[in-house]
Amino acid sequence: MLEPFFRWCESTALGRAVAESVWAFPVLEAVHLIGLCVLGGALVVVDLRLLGLGLTSQPVARLARNARPWLVGSLVLMVATGVPLFLSEAIRAYYNTSFWVKICTLPVALTFTFAVRERVARRETDAPGATGRIVGAVSLALWFTVAAAGRWIGFS
């Protein structure tokens, strides 16, 4: 049912341009990875703190507030590079299990991060409770799944 849509994606001007260029795909991939580094850092600093590790001398709320622009910025960068990467090989992605794992986990991770984690982080002050620990662990697990499935798209 969705296959025609994926075919259309690959036929878009942007998708074709990336697919036909020698450099575009590798450069987009490299920038996508830069985004991964910043995203990883912005997540890990706050999630470790929620788990009672890392920067334990700082209130969670402050760390979360400081990390937020980098979290949002890196996500924007990853989507901006990820979409053209996807468009260039949309049909291959359609038949790729890892792609579907990633694309289904991503909205869950995004919703959890901005609807649940952000609220919890804003409320946590000093010693994080059980809720903080669970939220930190779930956040790490969700984003790990997105990243691992993303890497595996290239192997499967």
Binding site: L36, C37, G40, G41, L43, R151
Partner: peptide, 23 residues
């Protein structure tokens, strides 16, 4: 592929925390 994936995903931890410190 597992070794390569571990190498890439650890970027988020290693370079990620380094970037936060550098910022």
């Amino acid at each position: 592929p597992l070794v390569e994936s571990t190498h890439v995903l650890t970027l988020g931890l290693f370079v990620g925390t380094t970037v936060m410190m550098d910022l």
